[in-house]
Structures are given as C-alpha cells and as structure tokens.
Computed example of a mutant assay.
Amino acid sequence: MPQSVDRALDVLDAVAASEGPVPAKALARRLDCGLSTVYELLGTLTARGHLVRTPAGYVLGYRVPSLHHAFQRQMRLADEVQELLVRARRAVGVDTYFSTYRDGDIAVLAGTAAAHPATGGFTPGRDAAAHATAHGKVLLAALPRAARLRYLSAAGMRAITPRTITSPERLDVQLRQVRREGSAVEVEESVPGVACVAVPVPAGPGGALTAISAALPLADFHRRGDRVTEAIRHVAAEAAKFQGTHDISRSTGG
C-alpha cells in the first residue's frame, strides 16, 4: 500500500511538472512504471478530482486549487497579505512572494507572478535551496545558529549556478550582513540572469519568521533594485499589522 501511494504521488508530481497534458504512456516511461499500473493510478486520481483526462493527456484537476486554499488556511495566511503582494506587483511591476520558516523547513506560501514570469518564478511550497534565495537568506539570518546549522545540514548547499554560495563560512558572512542591513540580495545564485531582494516581516516576541521578496531580471535589478527593496519594505511593514490579528504564518520556533 505505501508503495502505491508513492507511485500515485509520483504521477501527480509528474503531471504538475509538465507544461501541458501528459499521455499515460509518457508517464509510464517517465516513471519507469508499467502502463497498467499507471492507468490504475490515473483512474484513482481522476476519480478524486486531482487529475482531469483530456484528449491530449492528463492535466491537474479542480481539486488541486482547493488543496492550495486549504494549505493557506492552515498556515493562517491572511487574505490581506495576498492583496499586499498584488498591490506591490502593480506598483513596481515585479514578481513578489511571501515566505516562512516552519518546522525546520523554509517554504513559499504565496506569490504574484505573470503566467510565464521572465524570472522563472517560485511556486508555493517547500524551498529546498534557501541558501541560494533572497527570502531564504533573510529567514536563515533570523534563525538561532543551531537551528540554521540543522537546516543547512538537512537541506545541503548544492551549487545551482556558478554563483551559488556553497560554503557555510561564506554564507555566515553574508547572513551577518543581512542582519546588519535588514535585507538580503541574491544575484544569479538561483537562476541565471535573475536577481532577488527580500526583507523580513517585523514580528513580535515569539512571532513567526516570515519574509517578503521580489524577483526581477538582472538588468532591471541594476536599474532600480533600491526602489524595489523600498517597495517591499513597505509591504512587510503592512503585513506585520496582520501578524498579530490573523497569525499570518504559524510560529514554529527554532
């Protein structure tokens, strides 16, 4: 039974990672799984609304958005925070995101981006490479040293691009600067040709560790990175107002 659950989740992940409909035979090849098994799993996922069958193949079903809304509800993400991200994107024209540290993981909870963002974009969910992202650096900088080392030990520091920092010592130097300046900058460490900026959301004692970030093409960053940083500082200050009343992201400690 656990193996079939794993297989079903593999199918769901494979469909989610595709740019368009995926035929059953393609899924069987991709997952190195028998076609009859794949059809059985597809039938179950389709019946439960997680997938939809089209003439060209399988796509995500209408159950998926409800799962995302449930995720945001459980994380106590205030609607006002999403609205702030939308307003920020309209004001400065860049993709904006809201992230948190939770139970030893760093995750993106919400974001606003174009359908095909020039920056590649982040999708809501766990960020397994926080050492290479601006929001990750802000959250890592706020963690106690022991919690930060546990995270880096578990997640690793793989090189995503030639500019990714993979040395704990170099990262420590950068995180000290993040704490001094109250913001983080990441240039082509996660995606070539893309820069990100991030700031922490002010929180009271025991409050959740959260951050607001923005991603923009490198040339755009050099032209107006400072303006974008100031814009997301304003968003973070506004988001902090909802932290006490809505608990926009459950505190997990370190």
Rank of each mutant, 00 (worst) to 15 (best):
M1D: 07
P2Y: 08
Q3I: 14
Q3D: 14
S4D: 14
S4H: 13
V5A: 11
R7K: 13
A8P: 00
L9R: 13
L9G: 03
D13F: 04
E19A: 15
G20S: 13
V22M: 14
A24H: 07
A26D: 14
A26T: 15
G34P: 02
L35P: 00
L35F: 06
S36W: 11
V38F: 05
L41G: 08
L41I: 01
L41N: 05
L42F: 09
T44G: 03
T46K: 10
T46P: 00
A47L: 07
H50Q: 06
L51G: 01
V52F: 01
R53G: 08
R53M: 11
T54K: 04
A56G: 06
Y58M: 03
V59D: 01
L60G: 14
P65E: 07
L67A: 11
L67H: 13
Q74A: 07
R76I: 00
R76F: 09
A78C: 10
D79L: 13
D79G: 12
E80G: 11
L84N: 08
A91G: 03
A91S: 12
V92W: 02
G93C: 04
F98P: 01
F98I: 06
T100D: 06
Y101L: 03
D103L: 14
D105C: 03
V108P: 00
A110H: 13
G111L: 07
A114V: 02
A114Y: 11
G120P: 15
F122K: 00
F122N: 02
A128M: 12
H131K: 04
A132E: 04
A132M: 10
H135L: 05
K137L: 05
V138A: 03
P144M: 02
R145G: 00
R145V: 09
R148V: 00
R148E: 06
L152M: 03
L152Q: 05
L152V: 03
L152D: 04
G156R: 06
M157W: 02
P162M: 01
P162Y: 08
R163S: 08
T166Y: 12
S167L: 06
S167D: 15
S167Q: 06
S167W: 10
E169V: 14
Q174K: 13
Q174V: 15
E181P: 00
A184F: 02
V187R: 13
E188W: 09
E188H: 12
E189F: 03
E189L: 04
P192Y: 04
P192A: 10
V194S: 04
V194W: 04
A195P: 15
C196W: 12
V197E: 01
V199N: 10
V201A: 07
P202M: 02
G204H: 08
G204A: 14
P205E: 11
L209D: 01
A211R: 01
A215V: 10
D220Y: 12
D220F: 09
F221Y: 15
H222P: 01
H222K: 08
H222F: 13
R224A: 06
R227M: 08
V228P: 05
T229D: 02
R233S: 10
R233P: 12
V235K: 03
A237Y: 13
A240W: 05
T245C: 07
H246V: 04
H246I: 00
D247I: 12
D247K: 10
I248F: 04
I248H: 12
G253C: 09
